[in-house]
Simulated assay, not measured.
Amino acid sequence: MYNYNQPKKIDMNFVKDGAYRGGEAFSALNRSHGLFYVHGSLPGLVNSSSKIFASISEVGIFDDQVKPFLGAANMMILNVVPMDNSEVLVRCYIDWNEDLDFQVSIVVF
């Protein structure tokens, strides 16, 4: 029998980034490590038939701006689940022993 440890769930407010890519693009910032869920709501835009693509990257402050960069930690998107209640659930993993700043970006079609 498999033993599943329930990872923590991080509620995030996705902010539309304004760039047109054929879909609607959003991103959110937070800190974590290990296995966790990113959770957000996009009312009127997401249902279980939505196609959602997600990425994760480490972020830092460069020239007084938050910018993504390639750090030493492996960061992974494991699953993306659009739901009929307009919510998006993204399972992520950061292979590091302490919390790191990260950005999750999604595009909804």
Rank of each mutant, 00 (worst) to 15 (best):
P7T: 05
N30A: 14
Q65E: 09
P43L: 06
S32V: 05
D17S: 12
S49H: 15
M1D: 11
I10C: 15
N97M: 07
S57N: 10
Q65N: 08
D64E: 14
S41W: 03
V88P: 04
V81L: 05
E98Y: 12
A25P: 03
C92H: 03
F102L: 06
A73V: 02
C92L: 03
L42F: 14
D84G: 02
F36Y: 15
H33F: 15
F26N: 05
A73Y: 09
G18W: 03
N47R: 06
P82N: 05
A54W: 00
G18R: 12
I10A: 11
G60M: 04
Q6T: 13
A54V: 00
K16Q: 15
P68V: 00
Y93T: 00
L78M: 08
S86D: 13
V15I: 09
N3P: 07
V88Q: 00
F26W: 09
A72C: 02
M12R: 14
R91G: 03
M76K: 11
V15L: 12
Y4A: 15
A73P: 02
I61C: 08
K67I: 06
N85K: 14
S49I: 04
Y37G: 15
L35Q: 07
P43R: 02
N30C: 08
I56K: 01
D101C: 05
Y37N: 10
R21P: 04
Q103K: 06
E98W: 12
Q6G: 08
V15R: 10
G60H: 08
K67M: 13
G34M: 07
P82H: 04
S32T: 04
N13G: 02
A25M: 12
Y2E: 15
L35H: 13
K9A: 15
I61E: 13
G71L: 07
E98H: 10
A72N: 06
V38S: 07
P82E: 09
N79A: 02
P82V: 05
G71Y: 09
E24S: 14
I94R: 00
P43Q: 10
V46L: 07
N74D: 15
V66T: 14
P68E: 00
V66P: 09
G40Y: 08
S49T: 13
A25T: 11
D11K: 05
Y93M: 09
D17F: 10
A25N: 06
A28I: 10
Y2T: 08
K67R: 01
S27W: 13
N85A: 11
N74L: 04
D101F: 11
N97E: 14
S50V: 03
P43S: 11
F69V: 04
M76W: 13
Y2N: 12
N97H: 11
A73G: 10
V88D: 01
G60V: 01
Q6K: 14
Y37I: 12
F102E: 00
Q6I: 13
Y20T: 04
V90I: 10
L42I: 12
A25C: 05
S48Q: 05
D95Q: 12
L89C: 07
N13W: 12
G34Y: 14
A54T: 01
V46P: 09
D63Y: 07
F69E: 07
N47P: 04
S105W: 10
D11C: 08
Y4F: 12
